[in-house]
Write a protein that binds this DNA or RNA. Structure first.
Lengths: 329, 329
DNA sequence: AGGCAGGATTGGATCGTTCAAGTTTCTGGA
DNA sequence: TCCAGAAACTTGAACGATCCAATCCTGCCT
């Protein structure tokens, strides 16, 4: 068994001091070209890799980013997180960071986990997926000057932190516009109860687009918790009450329910969902697609910006969704 | 800003030496009850947490487990990995380990990543999801005595390493038996091309169950790559060729395709999928459900067994799937 | 009272890296 | 040729935990 290769091994091999090797790695410009080459050759020849634990001990930085993996709630939207995490891992990797997973069942436990991760692993930053009004997590992190980014904008105007989000209103607006262009006028909306930032945003895109087109949206929308059964129930209600020719939904779950409601009653009704989940792709549901890979990449960008220098809060990023056209609209 | 709490701070506060604090943490039984209590009180009062980097430097162990997050291929089966990862994170957490993510586009790059992760982060172990015949990854890890577990059994009989798997044959057998009990006799199977361990296993469960029931399975099965379109195509073919009254599929994607094929032709045909993905739940598809949380937990069990003592290779674990009954069968 | 065994406690060394300060080498101008 | 000043490189110390070996108690026996 070959002995462990440390910075001292490399130094001896290249006939320089440890510090010079360290400089080649961390500040190449201050080392003479010729020396640098010799050190780099030694590094390659020996297969040396800087020990992260030792580096961390001195610098206090772990090059680790924490992300939460949630229990897939209804299952359908779970894959959104999945794709986001994949993008995050990929981009973080390229920037020299690694992603560490954690779970927590509620906000309180999640905050306790923050303390644990920061204390024992000295995590460099957190990525929070999903935010709500008065989120205690962002408050806690901000109070302690822990770098973090949220995927999802802060719905309380007051706290300003770096965030990346997808413009939900633009997504539903795009969906609504497409339906208008196809000649629809009675375009309904099935969304979430008033008060959730994301839900209100998505409804606004639909409402404003109808207004702009001179269509009165009154009575054309319904609210419920997320779920297939809920979507089906509300769609039946809408069919009876206002007989819409199309419907835009705040999620693929709701849209799937709506599809089941129209089947057998009036299959000509157009349906558009939100999130472009695998389920949508599977059943041919047209859906608003979020650029998750891009979102993840921008999260990493913001974080590395904060971590590697910039002291000022970077500007937030609002990405535009696109419409994945299939045969339901 | 309060200064950093180290083991020395705790020692001073509890009026003992650093070593005693360390003993309370790592070998509580050798410390007198009264002293231990005093130290624990100090730890809680100060909110002390052992610095992982420093510990790792001395012990050479990171308490980090690596898991790969794949780009969700067709999207449908992606959530299987998602749920597995969640379980892994939860169980690892309870055992004092954390999960680090990595990605790689092919085997060669994945192996390069192993070297990197081992060299810089001194990872304790790897969890590999999915294995194939002659997998170069397991070979590489085994050659270097790196602890690892695979979720998916080794299909080459030769190499023996700890693994956890779900009995696919038992799953399809259960599905087939249910269909037989319901009176079906012409039970078809849509699976993957011969040569993939998982696919052959799932087909065997169907075939053997039919044999045992005295039904000849000849001509009742079809093979293709995974995908909804492929499933639909083969189901149409089966309907024309042998007019089955039920079909068992190797995946939910294939099953979904099959469902689309029978719709309008003969909706009375029963369909059973595999993996119990969100899509199955959404469309009411009966599907074989893998105990993913349990599988993840057993993976962690095996790893901690190897890491915390046991030098002998632990015995593999084969879990039994269950049937998630919905209205397609 | 003295001695002894055994466990509990202590100080010093160590892991591999980077920081801070020191020393040598090089460069160019008088 | 000499020297100032910069550039290049070297040395010692520190990060915070654990391991090791030495010392200190404590209770018990003679």
């Amino acid at each position: 068994m070959a002995e462990k290769v440390t910075i001292a091994t490399v130094a001896r091999h290249a006939r320089v001091s440890r510090q010079t090797v360290s400089n080649v790695l961390n500040a190449p410009h201050i080392v003479r070209q010729e020396t640098r080459q010799r050190v780099e050759d030694a590094i390659n020849a020996l297969g040396y890799r800087a020990n992260q634990a030792a580096r961390q001990m001195r610098t206090g930085r772990s090059r680790l980013i924490a992300a939460r993996i949630e229990p897939t709630r209804d299952g359908i939207n779970g894959s959104v997180l999945d794709r986001f995490l994949h993008g995050l891992t990929e981009t973080a990797d390229a920037a020299g960071y690694r992603v560490l997973l954690y779970t927590a069942t509620d906000d309180e436990r999640e905050i306790a986990t923050y303390g644990d991760l920061l204390g024992t692993y000295e995590l460099d930053a957190f990525v929070l997926v999903g935010t709500k009004y008065g989120d205690p997590r962002t408050q806690w992190l901000a109070d302690r000057d822990v770098p973090f980014v949220t995927f999802g904008r802060p719905w309380d105007a007051l706290d300003a932190h770096p965030w990346v989000d997808v413009d939900g209103a633009a997504g539903t607006a795009q969906a609504t516009r497409r339906l208008l262009d196809a000649g629809h006028r009675r375009i309904a909306f099935i969304g979430w109860p008033v008060g959730s930032g994301v839900g209100d945003d998505r409804r606004a895109g639909w409402r404003d687009t109808l207004h702009a087109a001179g269509v009165d949206p009154t009575g054309l929308h319904r609210e419920t918790e997320d779920g297939i059964a809920e979507g089906e129930r509300l769609m039946r209600d809408l069919l009876v009450a206002v007989a819409p020719s199309a419907v835009v939904c705040a999620s693929d779950s709701l849209a799937l329910g709506a599809l089941q409601a129209i089947r057998g009653v009036d299959p000509s009704v157009s349906v558009i969902g939100f999130d472009d989940t695998p389920v949508a792709a599977a059943v041919g549901l047209t859906s608003v697609s979020q650029p998750l890979g891009e979102a993840a990449a921008r999260c990493v960008d913001l974080l590395t910006g904060v971590l590697d220098g910039d002291h000022e809060t970077p500007s937030p990023v609002l990405l535009q969704p696109s419409l994945a056209l299939r045969h339901t609209a």
